[in-house]
């Protein structure tokens, strides 16, 4: 099964989809909290970070192959951005 060249890449594609889905759930939680607190700019930021991660992730997995770390760093920064949004909302 491992000899099939497309399988490792397909697994990586699925891992990206799971990750973007999980980030969507975090975005919804952050956006909800910001909306309840009456902070529309933070709602927009929570959604925008997810849209950006989605677009970058989609671009990375559109064609098979190994790529450099730039998108990975940006994905980690997106996660840290939700930490920042969360801290902002908790401490607000």
């Amino acid at each position: 099964m491992e000899r099939e060249p497309g399988v490792p890449f397909e697994r990586t594609q699925l891992a990206w989809r799971r990750t973007l889905l999980a980030m969507g759930a975090v975005a919804v939680l952050g956006a909800r909290m910001a909306a309840v607190d009456g902070l529309p700019l933070v709602v927009a930021a929570a959604v925008a970070v997810w849209v950006a991660a989605f677009v970058l992730g989609r671009r990375r997995i559109r064609t098979p192959g190994v790529r450099g770390p730039r998108t990975l760093v940006l994905l980690a920064l997106a996660t840290v951005a939700y930490t920042g949004i969360g801290l902002l909302l908790v401490l607000d």
Binding site: T19, A22, M23, L29, R32, L75, T79, Y82, T83, G86
Partner: peptide
Amino acid sequence: IRTGLALVAGGLAAAQ
């Protein structure tokens, strides 16, 4: 990253 996102989601859920 999903582990990190789960922890962040837990933090956001705890706060709300």
